[in-house]
């Protein structure tokens, strides 16, 4: 069972991701904001992290650089409303593995999650 951390502040999106990814046979943990995410990251190891960029308390970018510094091998997928090229480029430059924009297709997302999990 793979351990996935979902960092997201929209309750509807959280529920759907939790439901879908759990159905896929993963162990899903949820952080509703950047601070909570930091706490969970300190105490747990994850096989994959799915994060929004606009989060309360800690910016998405700060969170990504924190993850990259401490567990550089954990794959990160960004799930964000941004479609701006520079924001997407910034994310990839920081070492993000995949970038999915909202609105998103849950099936496609689950596929990309699986692919990244299998690669590692």
């Amino acid at each position: 069972m793979k351990k996935i951390l979902v960092i997201e502040d929209n309750p509807m999106v959280i529920k759907s991701l939790e439901f879908k990814l759990t159905k896929d046979g993963n162990n899903v943990m949820v952080a509703h904001d950047g601070r909570e995410a930091m706490k969970l990251l300190k105490d747990n190891e994850f096989d994959l992290i799915l994060t929004d960029l606009m989060l309360p308390f800690v910016t998405g970018n700060e969170l990504i650089s924190y993850i990259k510094k401490n567990t550089p091998n954990t794959p990160i997928i960004v799930l964000s409303t941004s479609t701006q090229e520079n924001i997407i480029m910034d994310a990839f430059n920081m070492g993000v593995d995949d970038f999915i924009t909202k609105p998103f297709s849950p099936n496609e997302l689950s596929l990309r999650v699986r692919r990244l999990l299998n690669k590692n």
Binding site: N10, M12, V13, S16, P103, S105, N107, E108
Partner: peptide, 12 residues
């Protein structure tokens, strides 16, 4: 509507 706003593809 709220679900629909955030989802696309088959789910939508």
């Amino acid at each position: 509507l709220h679900f629909h706003e955030n989802l696309k593809g088959e789910s939508a």
